[in-house]
Design a protein around this nucleic acid. Structure first.
Length: 465
RNA sequence: GGUCGGAUGGCCGAGAGGCGAGGCUCAGGACUGCAAAUCCUGCUACACGGGUUCAAAUCCCGUUCCGACCUCCA
């Protein structure tokens, strides 16, 4: 597991093919993921992106790479300013409120904190430096009104990710050619409007355009060239195209591989922010555990649409509980912690552009083998399959033994265990004298409390429903 | 108008020329005092019309339907 596996293949939006991953620096991987614009609580679509790229990160780490993972926070933009007016609190309070909401959601789903989580407003200096560079080399211009634009007509290449032609783009209705040389030139920097937050620059007070921050921050933390840049499908154009334009104009090689996750959809449509709050992460976590929501969000391939329904979520949870139940039984039977390991089949699946659905099929097979081993009391086979199941679940961020998912203190559990054992002794005494009415009454009482009793060849075990 | 993606069984969801993914649900069986859990068996699908091929869910042509992006977006 510590050996670097050279067989990882990833899909690159740049050339729309799956090809072998070769890091820029041996043994190291730099990833920049476009994070959230913190202007509303996260819905499950937002968090799918976090989960998908967290799985990528965990897999890269598992196969031996030293991963630097950067995920930004866009804490200044039009929507945040509008929200501030609407909520009657300062813009920075809006940004912090929803940044916390995202942080909580990531934590609830066991998405690892990034190596660095830069905020746009903390990197104005880097943005100004980038703009100075772009203006100095003729790529960008400051028309004098406080705005700064990138001149897209001068680009050697543009729209390479989305495969579009500049002249085919529908021009914006509100394109103002008073200052722009071309309607498609995009703003690196926006002049301050009265009442809006602003920062001083050589071209006047203003605030960042949306695209500039990612180029500046990726450069600050990962350098001129890095391995993987990720984000949602909708960021391909214009955001990622413009990041490329800015960065390449600055002479940076920028990202080698572009990876984009697909949507969580409802009724076949992209989840929109106007859906109300029923699909917010924290609302769904009232119905299922974080580990179950993560299992569901991670279960489809990252490039496939995931058609959300509460029925599908529940089915997925049932599937997960079967696997979780197996690991817990295995731990009890083996009387030891299960050491995670990676099966060859799981590795093959993950190396194939993170083929998680295939990996899940392999996990199901391992669980079946393990359950059969329990029946046959084959501890060696049980240990092997349990290890491989736990190892796979760890990569998927769904290890039920991960302390982050623990739901009760051990001291409390000991008391509970003592009490239930007392009841089970009574029940087993009744069963021994074939007083099944009495034994079933005890089981029914426990069931009513949410405690499930299972009789096994080696005795009765209990779990909390 | 331009660009990109999709349609798979009751449901979710892989695959991408041949050897039935997997899960969930449902039905039957084994085990069990009865359950639960587990295991076994069954439910043979790929939008439509052509074509290529010994062989097509997969490739080609056409059609229908659905969705995404085109300067707010995970």
């Amino acid at each position: 597991m510590s050996k670097i596996n050279s067989d990882l293949n990833l899909y690159n939006t740049s050339d729309r093919t799956v090809s072998k991953f070769v890091p820029l620096n041996p043994g190291k991987v730099g990833i920049y993921l476009c994070g959230a614009t913190v202007q509303a609580p996260p819905h499950i679509g937002h968090i799918r992106s976090g989960v998908n790229f967290d799985i990528l990160r965990r897999w890269l780490t598992a196969i031996g790479y030293d991963v630097t993972f950067v995920r930004n926070v866009t804490d200044i933009d039009d929507k945040i300013l509008h929200k501030a007016v609407h909520e009657e609190i300062p813009w920075w309070a809006v940004a912090m409120k929803y940044e916390r909401a995202f942080t909580d959601a990531y934590a609830a789903l066991n998405v690892m904190p990034p190596s660095y989580e830069p905020r746009a407003t903390g990197h104005i200096t880097q943005m100004i430096q980038l703009m100075e560079k772009l203006i100095a080399n003729g790529s960008a211009y400051a028309p004098g009104n406080g705005d700064v634009y990138l001149e897209v007509r001068k680009l050697k290449s543009y729209l390479t990710l989305s495969n579009q032609k500049l002249d085919d783009l529908q021009s914006a209705d509100d394109a103002d050619l008073t200052y722009k040389k071309d309607p498609r030139d995009f703003a690196l920097w926006k002049a301050a409007k009265p009442g809006d937050p602003s920062w001083p620059t050589p071209w006047g007070d203003g605030r960042p355009g949306w695209h500039l921050e990612c180029s500046a921050m990726a450069h600050a933390y990962l350098g001129e060239a890095f391995d993987i840049h990720g984000g949602g499908l909708d960021l391909i154009f214009p955001h990622h195209e413009n990041e490329i334009a800015q960065s390449e104009s600055a002479g940076w090689a920028f990202a080698k591989i572009w990876m984009h996750n697909a949507w969580v959809t409802t009724s076949g449509e992209k989840m929109s922010k106007s859906l109300g709050n029923s699909l917010q992460v924290m609302e769904i976590l009232k119905k299922v555990r974080g580990i179950e929501l993560r299992w569901y969000l991670g279960s489809a391939h990252y490039r496939s649409m995931l058609e959300f329904s509460f029925e599908a979520l529940e089915e997925s949870s049932v599937n997960f509980r079967r696997i979780e139940g197996f690991l817990q039984r295995a731990k009890e039977i083996l009387k030891a912690e299960i050491e995670p390991s990676i099966s060859a089949q799981f590795a093959t699946a993950m190396n194939n552009d993170l083929a998680v659905p295939q990996a899940l099929a392999d996990i199901s097979e391992l669980v079946r083998i393990g359950n059969t081993a329990i029946t046959e009391n084959n501890l060696a086979a049980l240990s092997k399959s349990a290890s491989e199941v736990r190892g796979a679940l760890g990569i998927l961020g769904c290890d039920p033994f991960d302390p982050i998912f623990a739901n009760s203190s051990s001291a409390k559990s000991e008391v509970l265990d003592g009490l239930i054992s007392l009841a089970l002794e009574q029940r087993n005494a009744a069963r021994a004298r074939k007083d099944f009415a009495a034994s079933d009454a005890i089981r029914d009482s426990l069931t009513a409390l949410g405690i499930i009793i299972e009789d096994t060849p080696t005795g009765s075990r209990w779990t909390v429903n």
